[in-house]
Simulated assay, not measured.
Amino acid sequence: MTAWNAEVPKPVVGDWKVENAGAANEARVGSWSWRDGVICITDAKLSGIINHGHAGIVAAAPYYYAVIEANPGTGVKPHYGSWVSRFSGQVWQVGVKSTSVAQDQKAAQWAARQIGKPYNREFYNVWTRSKFYCSQLVWAAYRDTAGPSADISLNSYGAAIHPFELRDHPNTALIYRKY
């Protein structure tokens, strides 16, 4: 039997949007992408024995080299520096296939406007915009800026959104993987 959070096999395609964008502020650092709106996911164990993962979104200016994320106790805030060195487990980056670079940047800017909001412990309350948990923040950034065609949740009935859903959704492509 496969674990509920087992990775759906996807090839690493790199940040295909960077090659097509040509903008100076979208440079890559190795295989990791600091392009606005790229989704970051880790298998970090943040509570008990259940590995539910963690998610964030690469921030737009003025939050250079930061990932905006929501954490218990601190709420929504930018975290500066590398996720690769911050998390000892697996780390992934994915991009949304159906969006443009401009739409990705809008999602990152939207996420930045949520900084300071509290953490959402009501995991099934995905439609609230007054508080966020990590994967809800990322999902809402795309849902609220690019619309339903950019949906990256594997459920359509309002259930909690897990980081692994963002990684494994057919509308996302794998940019980076670290084991």
Rank of each mutant, 00 (worst) to 15 (best):
A60C: 07
A111Y: 07
I39G: 11
T42K: 01
K117F: 04
A66S: 15
E26M: 03
T74G: 05
A111S: 13
A23K: 12
W83Q: 09
C40R: 06
G116A: 06
H79R: 14
S98I: 00
Q109A: 09
Y80V: 04
Q103D: 12
Q93N: 03
A61Q: 08
T74L: 03
D36V: 01
G30S: 07
A107L: 03
A61G: 04
T74C: 01
E122Y: 09
N71Q: 13
A66F: 08
Q90C: 13
T99Q: 10
K45Q: 13
A111D: 10
G75M: 09
A59W: 08
V29A: 08
A108E: 06
S98T: 15
I50S: 15
A112Q: 10
G53F: 09
S88L: 00
I57F: 00
Q90S: 15
R113G: 13
K97G: 04
Q103M: 11
A21N: 14
Y64A: 07
A23Y: 10
W83V: 03
S98E: 00
A111P: 10
D43T: 00
G75T: 05
N120I: 12
W32L: 04
N71I: 08
K97D: 12
G81R: 15
V38P: 01
A112I: 08
K106W: 06
F132Q: 09
G73L: 01
A107E: 00
A70H: 07
V38Y: 02
Y65S: 10
H79F: 07
H54Y: 12
V76G: 08
W110S: 06
S88G: 02
W127G: 09
C40L: 11
S98N: 04
H79G: 06
